[in-house]
Simulated scan of single mutants.
Amino acid sequence: MSTLKVRVDQKKLDRAAYVLKCVAHPVRISIIDLLDQRERLTVSQLQEVLQVEQSLLSHHLTNMRDKGIVYTQREGKNVYYFLTDNTITDIIGCINGCKLF
């Protein structure tokens, strides 16, 4: 038992918990999945696929931006959303592969 230890650095564990709390919502996980497929999307494009009210979608995107999950880039009238780190999309594979779901 003496060789048993936590294999992840505490700083990484803290960040993982922070990020997982942020994305722990079906709409937010769906946003991650869609941004993995297209790299960048507008609120209108996301809303078309997700079929949620724009105000609710904007709330989720603002929360994700504030937590550092997505960032934005304005091009004319459009604001595009991007993932800050594409490795977060690994969560989609974990969900699909997990027998608990």
Results as ranks from 00 to 15, higher is better:
Gly68Lys: 09
Val79His: 00
Glu53Phe: 06
Ser44His: 06
Phe101Met: 05
Phe82Leu: 13
Ser30Glu: 15
Ile95Lys: 07
Leu13Val: 12
Ile29Phe: 07
Ala16Ile: 12
Leu83Gly: 02
Asp66Glu: 15
Ser2Leu: 13
Gly97Gln: 07
Leu56His: 09
Ser2Asp: 13
Glu53Tyr: 03
Thr42Ser: 10
Gln73Leu: 11
Gln37Pro: 01
Ile29Trp: 03
Ala24Ser: 13
Arg38Ser: 12
Cys94Arg: 09
Thr72Arg: 09
Gln73Arg: 09
Thr3Ile: 12
Gly76Gln: 04
Leu34Met: 11
Asp85Val: 04
Val23Ala: 02
Leu83Ile: 04
Asn78Asp: 14
Tyr81Lys: 04
Thr89Arg: 12
Thr42Phe: 03
Tyr80Ala: 05
Val70Ile: 14
Ser55Met: 10
Ile91Gly: 00
Met64Ser: 09
Ile32Asn: 00
Glu48Ser: 11
Tyr18Asn: 12
Leu56Ala: 13
Lys21Phe: 07
Ile88Lys: 01
Pro26Ile: 07
Tyr71His: 12
Ile92Cys: 06
Asn63Asp: 15
Lys12His: 14
Gln10Val: 14
Cys94Gln: 11
Val19His: 03
Thr62Phe: 04
Cys22Ser: 15
Thr89Tyr: 11
Asp33Met: 09
Gln54Tyr: 00
Ala16Cys: 10
Thr42Met: 02
Asn86His: 04
Leu20His: 06
Leu50Gln: 01
Glu53Arg: 06
Val70Trp: 06
Ala24Tyr: 09
Leu56Asp: 07
Thr84Glu: 15
His25Phe: 09
Gln73Ser: 09
Arg28Ala: 02
Arg28Tyr: 04
Leu83Glu: 03
Leu50Cys: 07
Asp36Glu: 14
Thr89Leu: 01
Leu83Tyr: 02
His60Pro: 08
Val27Ile: 15
Gln10Tyr: 13
Tyr80Gln: 02
Val43Trp: 00
His60Lys: 08
Lys12Thr: 10
Leu34Tyr: 03
Cys94His: 11
Val79Thr: 15
Leu83Asn: 02
Thr87His: 14
Phe82Met: 07
Val52Ala: 00
Ile95Gln: 01
Ala17Arg: 11
Gly68Met: 10
Ile95Asn: 00
Arg15Ser: 09
Ile95Glu: 01
Ser58Arg: 12
Lys12Arg: 15
Phe82Ser: 05
Thr3Arg: 13
Arg40Leu: 08
Asp14Lys: 14
Gly93His: 10
Phe82Asp: 01
Ala17Ile: 10
Ile29Asn: 01
Lys5Gln: 13
Gln47Thr: 05
Val27Gln: 00
His60Asn: 11
Asn63Tyr: 05
Val19Arg: 06
Val6Asn: 15
Leu20Arg: 08
Phe101Ser: 00
Arg7Tyr: 11
Gly97Trp: 06
Val49Leu: 06
Ile92Pro: 09
Val43Asn: 02
Arg28Thr: 05
Gln54Ala: 10
Ile31Ala: 06
Tyr80Pro: 05
Asn96Glu: 14
Leu100Val: 13
Ile88Thr: 03
Thr42Tyr: 01
Leu13Glu: 12
Leu46Gln: 04
Leu100Thr: 09
Val43Asp: 03
Leu35Gln: 02
Asn96Asp: 12
Asn96Gln: 13
Leu46Lys: 02
Ile91Leu: 15
Leu56Ile: 11
Val19Trp: 03
Arg65Leu: 12
Ile32Pro: 06
Lys5Ile: 07
Gln37Asn: 08
Asp66Ser: 11
Ser58Leu: 08
Ser55Lys: 14
Ala16Thr: 14
Phe101Cys: 03
